[in-house]
Amino acid sequence: MDNIFADKFRKEGLLLPEAYGSDFVKKVFQRKDMLFALVALLLFIGLALFAPLISPYNPNTIDLKNKNLSPSGEHLLGTDYLGRDLLSRILIGAQTSLSIAFGVVLISLLFGTVMGCAAGYYGGIVDETLSRVIDIFLSFPGVIFALTILGVLGSGVFNLILALSIVQWAHYARVMRGQVLSLKRQEFVLSAVTSGAGDFYIIRKHIVPNAIAPVLVLATIDLGHVILSIATLSFLGIGLPADIPEWGAMLSAGKEFMRTAPYQTIFPGLAITFFVVIFSILGDGIRDILDPNHEGGEIY
């Protein structure tokens, strides 16, 4: 074989599975909507991370002399019914909402993916058992289920993450199981079987990379949903203790003053909407990029 063949080969990085990742990043940069959402998300993650340094006030300092103030130079987003600075509370609240949302999605995604893979790939009694467990978890209405778990465990950040993860994982498991069921009959998977590859190798190299796209899309959109669920639970008064600023709890408290001080609900509401929209855009973008049949998809 001549060297031109080999040189061209190496230059084009044919052996490199990393090319897969770099293609994905390239596609993200080609999409303006995703780039916008990503920059906005990173900006807000940065603000949330540095919230204790940039917040103009202590988010929990009560100042009854300055309660229910409208936005002004002193308090950019106004104050709440206890005189606490709304901007500071929204910034610190972002820290709470985002860390809980990422925690919940990560735990449910990992657990759900493993369970879904096991059910779909091994089939038989493993599938029967896991599918019934998944059905049971899916049969409960999410918020009611989380309320029940929190009622037993008590409120708090860790318990909230645990409760929402218990509610969410089955969704990931169901999507993953469906994907694996169709993939394991595909001829490239059968080729790997006849080549003598083991189950773990096949799942890692062929099943998960081909099945993960809809699960990642679900996860991205779920980040927005989890933020809404945290807000709902806080709104119902069972999510987090009162001393932890959180957007849902702020909405709940602000509803009493809707007529006189509407910004107390508008600003936290906008923050929630903003994140849900960002995650929806990212979810849609990831779906398009990972879909081999979509124009501009990674495998085109």
Partner: peptide
């Protein structure tokens, strides 16, 4: 069309 893993380049397959 389904004999090779669609997410791996031909050479990796």
């Amino acid at each position: 069309e389904t004999s090779l893993d669609p997410r791996m380049k031909a050479f990796e397959n």
